[in-house]
């Protein structure tokens, strides 16, 4: 198995773990955020692996974009959760549901 194929297997596992975590995180908003982080890490690693396999720098640019989205997601989601946590005891998704229909 080449390095690229092994990286694709690892990134696919990471992506699947993130999706499963996001589906199972029914109560904790932090768990949901970290699962989405795993998905974005898997996507970035996948882009980097394809950049090596196809010898194309576009994959690196897309990986950088995926990581930038991950950082922005952490900043926005973290700020929102900290703001909610200031006057509430919990960041449970069962509590923060006033926008849910």
């Amino acid at each position: 198995m080449t390095l690229m194929a092994a990286c694709l297997v690892v990134s696919s596992c990471l992506f699947a773990l993130g999706i499963v975590g996001a589906l199972l995180a029914r109560s904790s908003a932090l768990a949901l955020m970290m699962s989405v982080q795993l998905v974005l890490l898997g996507a970035g690693l996948n882009f980097a692996a394809f950049a090596v396999g196809r010898d194309d720098p576009t994959g690196i640019v897309l990986a950088v974009l995926a990581f930038v989205v991950a950082f922005a997601q952490v900043l926005l989601f973290g700020a929102l959760l900290f703001a909610v946590l200031r006057n509430n005891d919990s960041v449970s998704l069962r509590v923060i549901n006033i926008l849910r229909d």
Binding site: F71, L75, L76, A79, L80, A83, R86, N87, N88
Partner: peptide
């Protein structure tokens, strides 16, 4: 994306109405 994240995080952190929402 980075600029939006930074500005959004700063705005959310300093807005009082988000912090004062009683969920």
């Amino acid at each position: 994306v980075v600029l939006t994240g930074l500005v959004g995080a700063a705005v959310i952190a300093f807005r009082q109405d988000v912090a004062e929402m009683d969920f």
